[in-house]
Amino acid sequence: MTQHPTLVNQLSDHAGPFGTAGTASPADDTSDVSATARRVLGLPDPPEQSAGRAAAGRALERVGGPVGLAAATAPTVAFVVTDAAAGLEAAFVALAVTAVLASGVRLARRESPGAAVAGLLVAAVCATVAAVAGEARAFFLPTMLLPAVFVLAYAISFMARRPLAGLMVNRLAGGPRDWPRHPALRRIYTISSLIGLTMAGANFVVRVVFYVADEPGVLAAIQVGLPLLFAVHFAVTLVVARQTVGRSLAVPLPSAPAPDLR
């Protein structure tokens, strides 16, 4: 099953690939050795990776790479295709087999066992709802709640003056804990959160429209394709935030006025 790639626990558990701000990561050591070797051998430096390409690469990593993306989407695709070809009962069988295989692939790739179990549980819940309703489109009812939850989370974060994007991205970007006091970072996270709120709202509305229209194939396409779109949004926010951190920290914060002791 496809899950939203921007849940807080999914985001915070993947700090490793990006290193930790202010410390040298293994990737940094490897880069130093490679640079020295190129200088000794007189080889040219490799072309610098653009921010857009870096964001795309990180987005693909965020959904597990091509293999991880295929494993995550296979149960949904198998269910919809089999339902169209052989009916709902056969679709349940195809879903069960594919979900178990997908979990096996995740475990073989040394992903978190919790993620593999969660995939099975989500598939079971969606299948149960579809079985009770007796129609394929009901398979997508549980996952329709997710964009609504994100709309609510974005709205609450704005009311608390802590944009959700900052809560999810700032630690990975190496930003300071008091990032709301840094105008540049706060602006980046506010804009990103507004974009995320718009995406989540549109996601929910589109799902409702095609659910009412009884189009499980379209619902499957939305469920398969949108996680990568949200992952791109997350990755672009991370790239921009990391580029902004240095400039933001270089600007001194306004000092508090001295108390009047008279």
Rank of each mutant, 00 (worst) to 15 (best):
T73A: 08
T237C: 04
V8L: 15
A116Y: 10
V206M: 11
A51F: 09
T73R: 03
A71P: 01
L146Q: 11
L238G: 14
V77N: 07
V149M: 06
D83W: 12
F210P: 04
A78H: 06
V77C: 09
T98R: 02
A24N: 12
D13A: 15
L95E: 04
V206L: 11
I188T: 08
A130P: 02
T198Q: 03
G42C: 04
L120I: 13
L249R: 07
R171E: 11
L41K: 14
R161I: 00
D214L: 13
T143R: 15
I191A: 12
G87M: 15
I188C: 05
V33S: 12
S34T: 11
S25P: 00
P113E: 08
V8P: 06
V33A: 13
G52S: 12
A123D: 03
A221S: 04
G42E: 13
A24D: 14
H182G: 07
A133L: 09
D13E: 15
T82F: 08
P26E: 15
L145I: 14
R39F: 11
L43N: 01
G57I: 02
Q223F: 08
A99V: 04
F234A: 11
A148F: 03
T237M: 05
G114A: 14
V63H: 00
L164V: 00
D13M: 13
P66K: 08
S50F: 07
I222C: 04
A256Q: 09
V100N: 05
L238R: 14
P113I: 03
S25F: 14
P44Y: 02
L194D: 03
A148D: 00
G42M: 02
E111C: 08
A74Q: 08
L152Y: 11
P252M: 15
L194V: 10
Y189M: 01
T23I: 08
V206Q: 06
A160Y: 03
G42W: 05
T98I: 06
L120E: 00
A51P: 10
Q243W: 10
V209R: 00
Q243A: 14
L11P: 06
F234K: 03
A220I: 11
S248G: 08
L249W: 05
Q49V: 13
Q3P: 08
A241V: 07
A102L: 09
G87Q: 14
G225A: 11
A86R: 15
G65P: 05
H233W: 03
R186I: 00
A24P: 10
E48T: 14
A94W: 01
V33I: 14
V209L: 06
G64Y: 07
A160R: 10
L95Y: 02
V239N: 08
I188A: 02
P75V: 06
L185N: 02
P147Y: 05
R39D: 06
V169E: 02
V232D: 05
L7E: 13
F18V: 05
A108P: 11
I222P: 04
G52E: 09
G57P: 02
L60F: 04
L95F: 06
A99E: 04
I222M: 03
G104K: 13
V100G: 01
A94N: 09
V67S: 01
P142K: 04
S157L: 05
P183A: 11
R262Y: 12
T128M: 12
N170K: 01
A165I: 00
P17W: 07
L88I: 13
L167A: 02
P47L: 12
D260M: 13
A94H: 08
A250D: 14
Q49C: 14
A124P: 00
L95C: 06
R187V: 06
P75A: 02
